[in-house]
Design a protein around this nucleic acid. Structure first.
Lengths: 212, 212
DNA sequence: TTCACGATACCACTTTAGGGGTATGCGCTC
DNA sequence: GAGCGCATACCCCTAAAGTGGTATCGTGAA
């Protein structure tokens, strides 16, 4: 029997998954929590073989919980359970040490397989995102092909956020206490880094990639 | 026993909810479909007391299914089940005739209550969105306060999509086989309707509201 | 210690967006 | 059938974005 902890802010989903597993499935959701911050204390109280965790949660997100666990030396395999197919999330979770990644539109059979594999510390990637994983590792060998997003500095992200709010270069300059020239230079650098043609595409790209 | 049909593209969620209800709960998910287009044929085969439906689905969305049902004269009460707390979705579903609206982070007790009420053709609104509903009806008396989004015509949405892709007015004109002047007029109208200052804000707003 | 990078700043220039009008034809509704 | 919204199209003009440079300073890595 695999003892699993479920971390998901959607109560319905959590209770649903719990009742989905019958005793002879070999999987039991021993605890559900909607607050990732509780994970360390739960792990100290309960014996848990693996953690099923949603990525996007209000108080602390999946990646945050992974980091929290790592900082406390808690080493329980984690299967990320999410709707997001974006490389941004997949990448972050894998980098932070998740054992697997499965989409919420998976079937019960797929989830079962994923839970079993992850509890054995094997990797599981949902078929739909397997190709993206390969692309990611390929991209890693060619840094030029790597994700454009993390070439953006914090200051540049500030600029992007202002642009998204509809501020023009002058307004941004005043808000950040810098010259309008500097803002324009930043804009240019950002556009080159993200390989976009104009502000509109810059905003679209930034929102899709979660910069904004 | 309330016989419910569940329409959700997330298999896991669907199977989870199904197994959540035990015989003595008085609720049975008699069928799960991931494709809303199948709803009419399912209703002709099975006796169903109410429909639990996700709003955002790939092939046909919840509102689309409601419209499809209405066009075929199918009158089964529908409880919308979703993560979206946006007024945009709530409003559309209510306007199209949904009986209730519940968030996916509800508890089993709340879902049960909602299903029972909806099956009796009573309304159910998740507590979290009740206030928004009131605001909506208040807003209805003041049409100026209404949602800006649905003042946007289909053509204008096309223009917005092109802008988001980084196309300039000339490129959009060529793509849509219209004059650049027309595109500029559209842009102006859109910006006025959405009350935004420039393209960047237009893109941000449109993405947040789901126009793009 | 040199070298790369980020943040800052400036100049000059072209292109595009944005705002002011006005207008016409089409389909729908009251 | 008058009015309304929508898509279409054109005019003029200003403000802003976007493109080409160059340059200084500080910090942290090789």
């Amino acid at each position: 029997m695999i003892r699993a902890l479920l971390v998901d802010d959607h109560q319905l989903f959590g209770e649903g998954v719990r009742s989905m597993f019958k005793p002879n499935d070999g999987i039991e959701i021993v605890k559900i929590t909607t607050n990732g911050n509780n994970v360390p204390s739960i792990l100290s109280e309960l014996e848990v073989d693996m953690i099923l965790m949603d990525i996007s949660m209000p108080l602390i997100d999946g990646v945050g919980v992974l980091e929290l666990m790592k900082s406390k030396g808690l080493d329980v395999p984690v299967l990320m359970l999410t709707m997001h197919q974006d490389m941004k999330y997949i990448r972050k979770t894998l980098e932070t040490g998740a054992q697997g990644y499965i989409l919420k539109d998976a079937s019960k059979a797929e989830l079962t397989e994923a839970i079993v594999k992850v509890s054995r510390r094997e990797n599981y990637f949902h078929p739909k995102i397997n190709n993206q994983i390969f692309d990611y590792f390929r991209g890693n060998k060619n840094p030029s092909e790597g994700d454009l997003v993390d070439q953006i500095s914090d200051r540049e992200k500030e600029i992007i956020a202002c642009i998204g709010k509809g501020m023009n270069s002058k307004a941004i300059a005043e808000a950040l206490f810098i010259s309008e020239h500097t803002v324009k230079t930043h804009r240019r650098n950002i556009m080159h880094k993200l390989a976009v043609k104009n502000t509109a595409e810059l905003v679209t790209y930034s929102m899709e990639k979660g910069i904004i």
